[in-house]
């Protein structure tokens, strides 16, 4: 059966990723893949909004940044203990819950482009706040901090991030196939019709915002842990743009898409940083972003996974046609 094959394949890839550090022990590769896992989670949470509910946000970095700052500040102030980390987790979840709820409520009152602008403004505000509140954040320069000993080991941290990604993936997979998730997709497809079926679209959108916000916050936490350093760049527009591109390249409205997109974009980032010595253009990530974005939207509007799915479907059609069905 097709369905089973899919899971066996997934499990094999996961298994491979679990043993990878012992097969191929390259520090820089390990760090890169860890980043991919983290951004994959961030991108999946973004896709819950963009791809599954049809909400366009330009400020998803706000939750990412909150998670990152809660972790940095928490560990710096309370020492590098598990208790401190747990505390940071609590703060992240509470702040993201509250903020996503507020932002979500606004999303219902506003037309989509106003909403997108508003999220941009919110994130900008947080970024300025982080810059100005120097006593807490050390401003633009940011600060380094220590993390619990156990997580210092790169291999352990790699496994931790992988597990994190798998758990979020499975959770989101369950979510999108649940009655709740189907309603989100219905809203994306045709909001008016979802309303006329009797769904309280407003509440669904708020919940989508809350879930996406909290998951983004968690990914921000792991991000901060991986760098052991934080500055205001976690609130930067670039982060949202990256995650937007990951989702679009990988395929909106799929969960695998953001993971593949994260892998591509993070790898590209890495390579471009190396190429920066060759030509200055490679440093101007934002220019390349624009180019790739235009190309993808023009030629691959469904992204890699979406295009693949479509192609598979066509192949199946062809087979049926050949059988005369």
């Amino acid at each position: 059966m097709k369905w089973e094959k899919k899971w066996i394949f997934g499990a094999m890839i996961a298994l491979f990723l679990f043993v990878l550090p012992w097969i191929y022990d390259s520090r820089s590769t390990l760090i890169l893949i860890t980043q991919i896992f983290i951004f994959a989670v961030f991108a999946m949470s973004y896709d819950l909004l963009l791809g599954y509910t049809g909400i366009i946000s330009f400020g998803h970095a706000m939750f990412f940044g909150i998670g990152a700052y809660s972790t940095g500040i928490g560990l710096m102030r309370n020492g590098e203990t598990w208790t401190a980390l747990l505390y940071a987790l609590g703060i992240t979840v509470i702040l993201c819950l509250l903020l996503s709820h507020v932002v979500g409520m606004l999303s219902l009152r506003l037309k989509s482009h106003y909403y997108a602008m508003l999220t941009l403004a919110f994130t900008g505000l947080l970024q300025v706040g982080a810059e100005k509140w120097r006593s807490l954040t050390k401003g633009n320069d940011g600060f380094t901090f220590h993390i619990p000993e156990f997580l210092m080991d790169r291999k352990i941290f790699y496994l931790f991030s992988l597990l994190f990604m798998i758990i979020i993936f499975l959770f989101l997979y369950q979510l999108i196939s649940s009655p709740f998730g189907k309603v989100l997709q219905a809203i994306r497809e045709n909001e008016r019709r979802a309303l006329s079926l009797g769904y309280q679209v407003v509440h669904y959108k708020v919940w989508a915002n809350v879930i996406a916000g909290v998951i983004a916050g968690l990914s921000g936490m792991v991000y901060a842990l991986s760098l052991r350093f934080i500055n205001t760049s976690v609130f930067a527009v670039d982060i949202t743009l990256d995650v937007l591109l990951m989702t679009i390249i990988g395929g909106v409205g799929t969960l695998l898409g953001p993971i593949i997109g994260a892998a591509l974009i993070e790898t590209a980032h890495e390579m471009l940083t190396e190429l920066a010595d060759v030509h200055w253009l490679f440093e101007r990530w934002i220019i390349l972003f624009g180019l790739i974005y235009i190309l993808v939207v023009l030629f691959f509007p469904k992204g890699i996974v979406g295009t693949w799915n479509e192609w598979m479907k066509k192949e199946r059609w062809k087979k049926w046609n050949r059988l005369g069905l």
Partner: peptide, 26 residues
Amino acid sequence: DVFPHLTVLENVRLAVQARAGIHFHV
């Protein structure tokens, strides 16, 4: 006025679900 990129069954199931009052079940 249907949900174009959901299957026919999913379209109707959404209506059944709404009728049954099943809302925020993950």
